[in-house]
Nucleic acid binder design. Sequence first.
RNA 1: UGGGGCUUGGCCAAGUGGUAAGGCAACGGGUUUUGGUCCCGUCAUUCGGGGGUUCGAAUCCCUCAGCCCCAG
Length: 354
Amino acid sequence: MSKKVYVGMSGGVDSSVTAALLKEQGYEVTGVYMKNWSQDLPGMVCPWKEDYQDAKRVAVQLGIPFKVYDFETEYRHKVVDYMLEEYKAGRTPNPDIMCNQEVKFKLFLQTALEDGADMIATGHYARVKDGKLYAGIDPNKDQSYFLCRVTEDALRKSLMPIGDYEKPAVRELARKFGLYTAEKKDSQGICFVGKVGIKDFLKEFVHDLPGEGDIIDPRGMVIGRHDGALFYTIGQRAGLGVGGGLPYYVIGKDMAKNEVYVTADLQDQRLWSRSLTLASLHWVNEPPREGAAYTARTRYRADLISVREWRTLESGYFYVTLADEVRAITPGQSVVLYEGDRLVGSGIVVSAAD
RNA sequence: UGGGGCUUGGCCAAGUGGUAAGGCAACGGGUUUUGGUCCCGUCAUUCGGGGGUUCGAAUCCCUCAGCCCCAG
């Protein structure tokens, strides 16, 4: 008897091909559209209906059952509220990582299993084998970074067939299968924020905005004004609205004072760090082992950097020293550890050191 | 009201007779399933105002205005 797989279909090419491939491989496939957000935002009509229809069209093309799971309430609490709280606290969260942890590989998985599924599948560019998570074959599209907080248990019930292909090949497969979404443009940006942009989104959903504040240079001089410290993240070019010299980059901020600190010197040591402390650790299979060689990724698509040394502090934090300095380590962002192409686990940046 | 210097797009700034570099900012686009980074494009028919010399000036001359420095 063939296994029942519920495929999360977003209405994009990748998940469409995922469903097609699994069906071809003999699985009993059901397509599921997760409705996580449907609210229109100022200046943008939420594309959920269009995406839903695209997903359904593909399901019909493939001749597979199709259903919708409504996760709006949970998504709002687990992902959006988390994101808003982080921004208010002065950190820069990664909502998509939270979405994978809480929604796709927890809520969706549970719901699908209760619904009769044996497994779930998604259109991620990553590979799963024996409960372990590996980077996708296409180094340019590898999305394992976003899956850094998924559990081994969830992985044992997940399939990601796209991880074995490069993006152009996936497009080609979509054409070969004649899928409706074959030429659909890749989506980007936080799914629900989309084209609106994070700043406008925050302005809409954070009620007690701090208002204007000072932008301060390394000498302590006020060189400009900003419209709210929470909108800024480390390493970002701070648009002062006035020019005159070099671009300024954010090196820190004080939420209580609503101040943003910048430097015009790209070599400024406050912009670069070799060591960092991580919290909220999550190891997919087992914790790091002494003597093993690890590499770390400090942001999506960034180069992997050798881990020179690491240790768990008494506070429970994880302290890592890298072989090279990295620019703009940012509290709230995830740093992911790999052993070869296997994703070992991750932590969330508390602070950077030296 | 003696002398000297300066005045180029929102900001900084090249350019001293040959028909307006560049950077910042801004705006638009691209890359990217987070934010950010990065990349590309657009952005002065015009050089404080007026007049003159010249085939031709932001560049030379005259003049008016503003700013700065020194001397007072």
